[in-house]
Amino acid sequence: MMADLFDTLTSGPGEAVALAPGAWLRPGFAGGEVPSLLAAVLAVAEAAPFRHLVTPGGATMSVAMTNCGSLGWISDRRGYRYEQVDPLTSRRWPAMPERFLQLARRAADASGFPGFAPDACLINRYGPGSKLSLHQDRDELDLDAPIVSVSLGLPAVFMFGGQARGACASRHRLQSGDVVVWGGVSRLAFHGIAPLAAGAHGLTGEFRYNLTFRKVMSEPGAGAGAQR
């Protein structure tokens, strides 16, 4: 039944699974760091509380979010964009914790994208039924840098498609501590999260948290990294 429901490969802890050229699922890559990562998430949320953003079309997102880093991603009636100041608090976004930076760099390095220097970390909080429809991460100026995504808490179904919204998307069960990295020819792949199933996690209760690291601003001479 599980194999029918989830299109995943049963690799051992730490054994990378290729999702597409330049895209990797790394099971348990952050497993030992989950408690400290969650503590850092809660510290960020104290300074920049979770909120449900409104899309340009007027819909309220089911996922609650906040940011840390020099830039934060926001959405409202004026569109999707990055801002230096949190519109909820009128203060700069909290600094990105060093443990976040180190994890993102290690995951990118292991996936063939050396020198990753994210300047934004989106933190999403999923409750029962929350989802993220298939979309592209394309609001960044630097599309050479990869995306690094870290799962914390309840498991979720990650959907990973192609360059067109209508392309068939594979489905992969993500556990707490799993990391997904995609870049290069897969940088603009459509991806999303299926509605979160109700459950209880020992550290996060009914929630799943996701850290998404991005490089927003371009740097002269930045390359796309190796493809493996």
Rank of each mutant, 00 (worst) to 15 (best):
T60L: 13
T60P: 00
M61V: 14
V63P: 01
V63K: 05
M65N: 12
M65A: 15
N67V: 02
C68D: 01
G69E: 01
S70N: 02
G72I: 02
W73E: 00
W73A: 08
S75M: 14
S75P: 00
S75T: 15
S75N: 01
D76M: 06
D76Y: 09
D76S: 12
Y80V: 02
R81A: 12
Y82D: 00
E83K: 03
Q84T: 10
Q84H: 04
Q84D: 03
V85L: 10
D86L: 03
D86M: 02
D86T: 02
P87N: 00
L88W: 01
L88S: 12
L88E: 07
T89C: 13
S90P: 00
R91T: 11
P94V: 07
A95H: 09
P97L: 08
E98F: 03
R99P: 00
F100W: 04
F100S: 05
L101W: 04
L101V: 15
L101T: 15
L101S: 14
Q102N: 11
Q102A: 15
Q102V: 15
Q102M: 12
L103I: 07
A104H: 10
A104N: 01
A104V: 02
R106N: 07
R106S: 14
R106E: 12
A108M: 05
D109K: 04
A110S: 15
A110H: 09
S111T: 06
S111F: 11
G112R: 10
P114Q: 06
G115N: 10
G115S: 10
A117N: 07
P118D: 03
D119R: 13
A120T: 15
C121Q: 07
C121M: 14
R125Q: 14
R125T: 01
G127N: 03
P128Y: 13
G129P: 07
G129R: 14
K131E: 13
S133R: 12
L134I: 04
L134R: 10
H135T: 06
Q136L: 05
Q136M: 10
D137H: 09
D137S: 08
D139E: 14
D139A: 15
L141D: 10
D142P: 03
D142Y: 07
L143I: 13
P146V: 13
I147V: 15
V148Y: 05
S149T: 11
S151H: 11
S151L: 11
L152N: 02
G153M: 07
L154R: 15
F158T: 03
F160K: 11
G161M: 11
G161I: 12
G162S: 06
G162R: 07
G162I: 10
G162T: 08
Q163N: 05
A164D: 11
